[in-house]
Design a protein around this nucleic acid. Sequence first.
DNA 1: CTAAAATAGGATAAAAATATCCGAATTAAA
DNA 2: TTTAATTCGGATATTTTTATCCTATTTTAG
Lengths: 144, 144
Amino acid sequence: MFSKACEYGIRASIFIAKNSFEGRRVSPKEISEKINSPQAFTAKILQALVKNNVIKSVKGAYGGFEIDKEKIAKIKLAQIVNAIDGDNIYKGCGLGLDKCDENHPCPMHDKFKVVRDGLRDLLEDTNLEELALDLKKGSAFLKI
Amino acid sequence: MFSKACEYGIRASIFIAKNSFEGRRVSPKEISEKINSPQAFTAKILQALVKNNVIKSVKGAYGGFEIDKEKIAKIKLAQIVNAIDGDNIYKGCGLGLDKCDENHPCPMHDKFKVVRDGLRDLLEDTNLEELALDLKKGSAFLKI
DNA sequence: CTAAAATAGGATAAAAATATCCGAATTAAA
DNA sequence: TTTAATTCGGATATTTTTATCCTATTTTAG
């Protein structure tokens, strides 16, 4: 469904959000350990998320990654997915046609549209806060 | 969402089904032209579909690909997707966790499950016949 | 000012997906 | 039986994704 990079990016963002709630900055090393992802590769993805204003980095000693507490509830999954995989997964045609709409549909269009729009709603309506809180409560996990 | 190979595979299967309804066998050349896909690569995918009993090949002169008319309504999209991409897309965790279920969910689990199960239903309930008929009627398309 | 602790970013490598090419094997028709 | 039209299958190439490594740059503490 999503690329590995995107899976890591979402998991990392949730982990950073949870720690920012608790006032802690986290390093790529700690992130990759806690979400079970390759460290250097994860660091690249974090850079992309910084550029897209999803997370914030603080350089130098005592630096790390964080998200402004007030921003956590405003960051939607769609923003993360979009920064890494683009929007084709929740806006494009299921069979890969460039032009696929009501006027010129692929054979799967009507049925697929329902699923795709469900995914779009999920991504556009779900924010980092609710996901991070589940993690904090211990009712959800980011590894294994 | 699906891999290119899978998109081509589904489009090709629908095209073959439509032609089998009309009593015609089709070649990889014609298929790739009509569904707008690279010919040699599409031929490889067709071989995989033959091995998985989705389509039938007839070798030699006047040969080509076809599907038994009685089988067309029985072939589900899930069978095609499974043969090419596997079932992770409609059975796996959205964030890539190996173990993700009610007892050990990722933070997206509850919401993602709805979308994923919708996709599973789509793939398991939709058969080649209905898709091929839309193509035949001219109410759906496989290219552009 | 210096040293230590971080992120940033370029170069490179490995693996997987996508794609092409060509000869071998098969088969129907003439 | 020969020929032409096919699919089959192996080898190879290209592109994208995933991953690693190393150095430069930044920043805070002492």
